[in-house]
Amino acid sequence: MVAGISDYLKKIWALSIKDMRLYYFKGPTIVMGIIMPMFLWLAFMIGSSPSMGSAVAMLLSISSFFAASSITPVILPWETRQKTLEMILARPITIELILLGTCLASMLYGVFVSLVIIVIGIFLGVCPANIPVLIVSILLSSICYSFMGLLFSAIPSDVPADAVLLSSVIRMPLIFISGVFVPINRLPAFIRPLSYISPLTYYADVINKLYIGNSAFNMGIDFSVLLLLTIILGIFTIETNRRTIIKRL
């Protein structure tokens, strides 16, 4: 049993190394992962003049979200196209292991991009209040975003652009309703229910608490909801991908 689990972990790790090497930790991808949220962030900075603390918090809130959910949706359609999917599925692994491998790679990429921003922040004299809590929130939210990214790849299309389109259509609005740039209580009432089911809301809340000391919810609520959303998204993602992956053969 223990040997079984350690074998599974080894396989997930091997698959995730493959994903990191092929997709995530490549020069252009890393640059894009940092620059994309940076531009969005700059667009908001111009005009408003927030404190350094809230500026870093805003950037940090969106960057791991961008990172962990941008390339992730493309991988399965891409591998279908490249005809590597059936080749890898014929090994002693399961669809779940493939998805968890990608999720792990995507999470580590999100963590990496976040660390870069945290370090830049520290150089600018902005320090988070509690580093362990920060790390846990980054890990948890990155897993959640990765599952979200993988969910977009469950559309039965082998055209990577389809997954990109779908994920952009959903990701962009999510940023605006999650209290990153505009506090939730200033959003129109009919949008607010959506804010409450966005994982980004709770992550951004933790980041705000740690960087500028104010937050909308209690930290316990933030983490509980984030965990709950991660579990729900995880189950949903694995289930939907299991259905479509058969059609990819």
Partner: peptide
């Protein structure tokens, strides 16, 4: 119809 990972 299958391929190795072409970038590895």
């Amino acid at each position: 119809v299958s391929n190795p990972y072409v970038d590895l």
